[in-house]
Design a protein around this nucleic acid. Structure first.
Length: 770
DNA sequence: TCAATGTGTCATAAT
DNA sequence: GGATTATGACACATT
């Protein structure tokens, strides 16, 4: 069956591709849906290769259009829609928006291959996957960024519709996928896709089918669902053609009135750069790299590649400095605006902010991942040499300068020129304090080596929602052991609950006599029933032990999977038993327990009794140790008054109560101690991360400040060098200086006067401090 | 055999 | 002042 399905699938796919290549438009799904249900079941069942087109059909019916894909009017209809969408999407600066998710799917270590299934969020939440996202070059920062990056991605997902890898083609074609306009439908698609791909995830032939699916996606218009021949096999050429086509459409068919949203959306581009201080004409400069490409396709392609390489660096910035994104200043923050003259840092932060807040824009930026070139549809294959091999935060930050280099006119982009060319020296090399960088690196390494404290806190919240004494037993692994042991002891099921605390009355040698469970209901071992079962299984384990292991386990998350194993961890403290019991303290074989003779169970439980329980039984104490320990003092005294007890018995009872309470107190104390240690550890890691972030921000600010100063200095020298006196001679820099007036004018004043004014200005802040 | 760890118990102070 | 709780210290068992 599988072979038949594969045969049919591949054969039909190849046939479809061939037909498409020769210009015949074929929509297999139409036939599969309406005419060949068995084949559809066979092929569509677990195969993800067909879900895309199926979704198109779904959309065609679900979004209300209701146009049959094979309708004669479909050409005009879809062509008009596609062209309109092209025009509309043109101004959105659409670069492939979904490759990142496709890449995530491919990189998923769990092997989930569906990019459109709803579980993509799970993929994003996977820490390993996130580390993969950061790329191998970002290992230094993985530990620090994995949590923040996850949050960042979640933020992106919260704003932007979840997109999948099977949209790649439409991104290349138009940029704006249909999902951009119909998110709800996309969710429906994902639901269907999940059903369809449940089996596909286990299909070993996915890679082949996935490649075919990608190739097939190239033949299906992502926006209209229309199938059309793959006219341009090369991704880059296709991208260029799409742009050219769009531009031609823009010029030929669309009046400006129809592009009323164009400038508004252009702002979405300019918002990515600190345009607050830009002159209005800059937008033209900003657009020029894209719009002027119609005249020179090569230039357009070259600029497009440059842009993609820049965006790629931006994406790496997203992957590697999420904390900076999370902590970065809001758009209106003075830090972001005041540095607008030096575009490096503000651009970086603004872009990051938009990546975190604007879905479309963020996706557009984030898809430039180093893995994009692995997809045969993007034009980023030539970008690989541009990808910095050492993608540290600082290097990726430098990448943002190239963005300014592209968007800003050269005369305003002195800093970008400093960093754009490979032949130019790295400006940061002379600007940054090496010690500071080393500190950052060491800090990142230190953080990386430790367990992520945020994850630890999450685990702590998950496993111990109550930091106090009482634990929710439903969250405790002891409930597992409870369920496991529920059938092991019949006496456990008959354990009687007395008032607030349940006393475990297990059968002993004399069936009527009671054994005692020292672990009472007070403290954080709240559920004595489970404890009884654990004791019945020979595990001393009590709730705090499990709690402790839970806490220890989130030092290493992998240990979380071993929780059932914990029931065997408990120490067999046979020293609690009476010497007579120690003689035969060996655990009974499991077969004996399974055979379940009550006497053997009674012997076994008898052996598990604590020392005080044996003493109490030896002294013929008429009530359980559990009552002795856990009853309130009034009830306890009332209980004692009911019986005629000897002094020895009363003394033993008081000792039992004291030891029992102290035992629980010790457990609580140890639990609190461990909690304190873990909280301190987490606080230390948080502080280290904050310190590293602040250091990075400081470095960036210093770098921006330095670059601004350099720029101002160069402008100063340039202006000053052009000044001439009445005789046409240049002014001496030692005698004259330029001073900036408050109204924006520049005055030439004697150096001495300038020095005096400078001193006055220096004194003012000092006086204010005083 | 030794070290690390877990646990119960005691003594003592604090509540 | 007694009961309870918290905690350091110790001993013992287990790994």
């Amino acid at each position: 069956m599988l072979s038949l399905k594969k045969y049919l699938t591949e054969g039909l796919l190849q046939f479809t591709i061939l037909l498409s290549l020769i210009g015949v438009r074929v929509d297999v799904d139409t036939y599969l849906t309406s005419q060949l249900p068995p084949l559809r079941e066979i092929i569509l069942g677990p195969s993800s290769a067909y879900t895309q087109t199926q979704f198109h059909n779904l959309r065609n019916t679900l979004d209300g259009y209701g146009v049959h894909p094979k309708s004669i009017d479909l050409d005009n209809y879809f062509t008009a829609r596609r062209l309109l969408s092209q025009v509309r999407a043109l101004d959105r600066f659409q670069v492939p928006t979904t490759e990142v998710n496709a890449w995530l799917v491919h990189r998923d270590p769990e092997g989930s291959v569906s990019g459109s299934q709803p579980s993509s969020g799970l993929t994003l939440e996977s820490s390993s996957g996130l580390q993969d996202v950061t790329g191998p070059d970002n290992g230094v920062r993985e530990s620090e960024t994995e949590q923040g990056f996850s949050e960042d991605l979640e933020d992106l997902g919260a704003v932007a519709p979840p997109v999948s890898g099977d949209l790649t083609k439409e991104d290349i074609d138009l940029g704006a996928g249909r999902e951009t306009f119909d998110y709800s439908h996309r969710q429906k698609e994902q639901d269907v896709d999940k059903e369809l791909q449940d089996g596909a995830e286990q299909d070993d032939t996915w890679s082949g089918e996935g490649a075919e699916a990608l190739a097939r996606n190239l033949l299906v218009d992502g926006e209209t669902g229309e199938s059309f021949p793959a006219q341009v096999p090369g991704g880059e050429d296709q991208t260029a053609l799409s742009l050219e086509e769009c531009l031609r459409l823009l010029e030929a068919t669309c009046p400006f009135g129809e592009n009323a949203e164009f400038p508004a959306d252009i702002s979405s581009i300019t918002e990515a750069v600190p345009s607050e201080s830009e002159p209005p004409g800059l937008q033209n400069n900003l657009l020029s790299p894209l719009l002027t490409g119609t005249d020179s396709p090569f230039d357009l392609e070259q600029q497009w590649q440059d842009l993609m390489s820049i965006m790629e660096m931006q994406a790496m910035e997203v992957n590697t400095s999420t904390n900076e994104i999370l902590y970065s200043a809001p758009p209106g923050d003075p830090l972001s605006t005041n540095y607008s003259l030096a575009p490096n840092t503000p651009i970086n932060q603004n872009v990051s902010l938009h990546q975190a807040s604007l879905g479309g824009c963020s996706q557009d930026f984030s898809l430039f991942s180093p893995e994009v070139e692995s997809l045969p549809v993007a034009s980023s294959s030539t970008l690989l040499p541009l990808v910095p091999s050492n993608s540290t935060s600082l290097n990726s930050t430098f990448g943002s300068t190239n963005l300014a280099g592209l968007f800003f006119p050269p005369q305003l982009n002195g800093t970008a020129n400093d960093t754009a060319g490979p032949e130019l020296p790295d400006p940061l090399g002379g600007l940054l304090d090496e010690a500071m960088l080393d500190e950052i690196s060491l800090m990142d390494l230190a953080i990386e080596e430790g367990f992520n404290p945020v994850q630890a806190s999450q685990l702590e919240e998950e496993f111990d929602s109550d930091s106090g004494l009482s634990l929710d037993s439903s969250h405790s692994p002891s409930s597992l052991s409870s369920s496991e042991g529920s059938s092991s002891s019949s006496s456990s099921s008959s354990s009687s609950s007395s008032s607030s605390s349940s006393s475990s009355s297990s059968s002993s040698s004399s069936s009527a006599s009671s054994s005692f469970s020292e672990e009472g209901a007070v403290g954080y071992s709240s559920d004595s029933e489970t404890l009884d079962l654990e004791e019945a299984e020979g595990a001393v384990g009590y709730q705090p032990e499990y709690s402790k292991f839970c806490r220890m386990s989130y030092q290493d998350p992998s240990q979380l999977s071993c929780l059932p194993y914990l029931e065997h961890v408990g120490h067999n403290h046979t020293y609690n038993m009476a010497p007579s019991a120690l003689d035969s303290a060996d655990l009974p074989p499991p077969s004996a327990l399974k055979k379940g003779s009550k006497e053997k169970q009674a012997d076994f439980l008898d052996k598990q009794m604590s020392r005080d329980e044996h003493r109490a039984r030896a002294m013929k104490i008429p009530f359980t140790n559990d009552k002795i320990i856990n009853l309130p003092v009034e009830e306890f005294n009332e209980l004692l008054s009911k019986y005629q007890l000897s002094e020895a018995q009363l003394s033993l009872i008081r000792d039992i109560r004291r030891r029992g309470k102290n035992k629980m107190a010790a457990q609580n104390c140890r639990k609190r101690k461990l909690d304190t240690i873990l909280n301190l550890e987490r606080d230390v890691e948080d502080l280290q991360r904050d310190k590293a972030r602040l250091l990075r921000e400081k470095v960036e600010f210093l770098r921006s400040l330095r670059q601004m100063k350099q720029k101002v200095q160069s402008l100063y020298q340039e202006v000053f060098g052009r000044l001439r006196d009445e005789n046409g001679r240049p002014y001496s820099p030692s005698q004259y200086a330029l001073q900036y007036a408050g109204d924006g004018s520049v005055l030439l004043i004697p150096r001495t006067l300038a020095d005096q004014q400078a001193r006055r200005q220096e004194r003012k802040p000092k006086d204010r401090r005083k």
